[in-house]
Structure formats: C-alpha cells, structure tokens
C-alpha cells in the first residue's frame, strides 16, 4: 500500500473538462487505489465525473493528484498523461 502525491499543471487546451474529464474518470476507475484531486481548497473524488467537473480546472491551473493503494504509482502515472497532454483526444 502506498500513497503517491503529485502536483501537476493542466496542459489540455480544454482544461479538465469535456472529453479529458470523462477520460480522466474512466482511467481513474480502472485502478483500485483511492484517488483524490485537489485544486486550491477544493478536494474531490478522482473517480467521480461530477467531482472532476466541479473542480473547474482550466488550462494552466495547478492540481494535486493523490492516489492511495497498491496500484497508486501506476494510477498517478496514467492520470498524469491525461492531465499534461496538450492534445485533444
């Protein structure tokens, strides 16, 4: 069991909205780890589309992803790809 925490800058043009948000939640749900995402004071469940959308993370905003569980490392690695990708998928 490990806890991985990583601070990231949202690079996607659309921010963590639209497709990137849906993709983020889909990928987060593949992992067993508990995943939370923080932005400023707000902290939400990373497996919840409502939560991610409520963060309203625009491009260039700074968020912290935290994963807790056996697959925490891989989870953060995969989620980082989505957050920092500049391309729309």
């Amino acid at each position: 069991m490990s806890v991985i925490r990583k601070q990231l800058t949202v690079k996607n043009r659309q921010g963590l909205h639209a497709r990137p948000a849906a993709l983020f939640v889909q990928v987060a749900n593949k992992f067993d780890s508990r995943i939370t995402v923080k932005r400023d004071e707000e902290e939400v469940n990373g497996k919840s589309i409502m939560g991610i959308l409520m963060l309203g993370a625009e491009k260039d905003s700074i968020i912290i992803i935290e994963a807790e569980g056996d697959d925490a490392h891989l989870a953060v690695q995969e989620l980082e790809k989505i957050v920092t990708s500049e391309e729309d998928r």
């Binding site: 849906a22 939640v25 889909q26 939400v44 469940n45 919840s48 589309i49 409502m50 939560g51």
Partner: peptide
Amino acid sequence: FDAHLLVLEDRML
C-alpha cells in the same frame, strides 16, 4: 449515453 452511465455510476453522488 456513455456520459449518462458516468453520471449514474458516479461515486460521489
């Protein structure tokens, strides 16, 4: 309807 399923299965909700 994938978006609907995401909302339906939303853990926070």
